[in-house]
Design a protein around this nucleic acid. Structure first.
Lengths: 243, 243
DNA sequence: CTGGCGAAGATTGTCGACAATAATAGCGAC
DNA sequence: GTCGCTATTATTGTCGACAATCTTCGCCAG
């Protein structure tokens, strides 16, 4: 249940604190150490992480259930390539669940919670003033996770965490849209305001509006990348992570 | 990824489906062959299903990810006991996702889809006329699943299937409420009507109303069982399946 | 009689080896 | 030169055995 805590896996910090090959492999995949569709050979992973093949096998089973890899019988495991279409499906599910949690958060928020939310908002505004889009992007999930914590629906949170790790590859492109961070901040402020007012309906609406724009931005990012790719090669209608 | 498609045309799937200890164990758990909190000893399962301990271990890993069992390190696996609180959380998530899918279905439904839905509705009305509550209850998930198929959001469907298997234990009590089946049928008819009218907003609202009543009924069933249990024994505030 | 202490039993976690299967390379026929 | 077949190789799937750990039972002191 604690696997939703890490909030800054950006730097390649090989923390020896976590020896579980499952967590390490997961981090490696979501941070892009393995290319999409790359084969994951059990023996290699066993060597790489200094764990027995049994542990690697268990890790692969877990990651398969989480949707990060695909396993074909007798043909091994590959890191799963999320199609643009599936990214939209994921985003729609996220939309529905975040609205649910926003609603709950508006009903349950205490003053400590509101203080934290305001602090995160202030930090986001600061990053925006410094034109630090990357810093802003890192704060974004932090705010959402704080809202999740207020809502206190463990089931929904677990689903959201799993989905997030699957679609992380698409997260990078969405911040490049001109003017998006400023708009995003205003939307977040509206959400927090609705939580502070303990108004579930308004909070639901604010979150719906926010995520609707996220969906649009995702569409924009995918179109943008597709356009770029049409110069060099033509492949499946899927995306790879930006280098 | 095909493990949620009932129409998957895989050839050797049948022989595998019957032999795969993971599926068999899952069926055994959701159908109540194992009591909640009952220990699942690997050696026993290995004997029971004629599979090696390795396969059993893989199955346990999968079912742990699905939330049907809990595994404590060096202490083995137990079938997970879903608390009443968690049942509510699950139902809320289901609520959000079913509304999403209902919306999508209203936009995408073709005439074949509508025919199937009407056929299921007719069958439900028939069961109701015969006062066959159990038969009605069996048709219920069939209708919802058909709606899922129309919506065609594989990600949401997979989440819903997983959640369903977790909360199946609470399904039995909800049909015992007097007058509930008749009301349920009317709500289902409203949902299908909204789909037929290709009206996403109306469909969302109809589904929300339906699942709101399901939530109420779940509350009623839990209260009802709690009241019954206070006669005989005092235990944790959780529920077991009716014998 | 109760409560700690230690040994025996039961169960899980891990490793290595072998069998089963898919991918690949090599060879021969046309 | 290319196609098809076979042998080799690489990789996964499965099994048995052993070590690590937890649980239970029996024993003994107080």
């Amino acid at each position: 249940m604690n696997n939703l805590a890490p909030s800054s896996p950006s730097i390649k910090q090989r923390s020896r604190l976590l020896n579980d090959p499952c967590d390490r492999l997961r981090d490696a995949i979501v941070s892009g150490d393995f290319q999409p569709n790359e084969r994951l050979v059990e023996a290699d992973l066993s060597l790489r992480y200094g764990a027995g093949r049994t542990a690697i096998r268990a890790a692969l089973a877990t990651l398969d259930q989480e949707g990060l890899i695909v396993r074909e019988p007798n043909r091994g495991a590959r890191v799963r390539l999320i199609s643009a279409r599936e990214a939209f499906e994921i985003e729609h599910v996220r939309n529905a669940l975040e609205r649910l949690l926003a609603r709950s958060a508006a009903q349950r928020a205490a003053s400590d919670d509101l203080d934290d939310l305001q602090a995160i908002l202030a930090a986001m505004a600061e990053r925006l003033r410094e034109s630090d889009s990357f810093g802003y992007m890192q704060l974004n999930p932090q705010l959402h996770r704080r809202i999740w914590r207020i809502s206190d629906n463990q089931v929904a949170i677990k689903v959201l965490v799993t989905l997030k790790s699957q679609s992380i590859r698409f997260q990078y492109g969405t911040i490049l849209r001109p003017g998006r961070p400023a708009q995003s901040l205003r939307e977040h402020e509206a959400i927090v305001a609705a939580i502070a007012a303990h108004d579930p309906d308004a909070c639901d609406a604010a979150m719906a509006e926010h995520l609707g724009h996220v969906l649009e931005t995702l569409q924009w990012a995918i179109d943008s990348q597709d356009r770029q790719r049409s110069w060099s090669s033509r492949e499946e209608p899927t995306l790879s992570a930006p280098a």
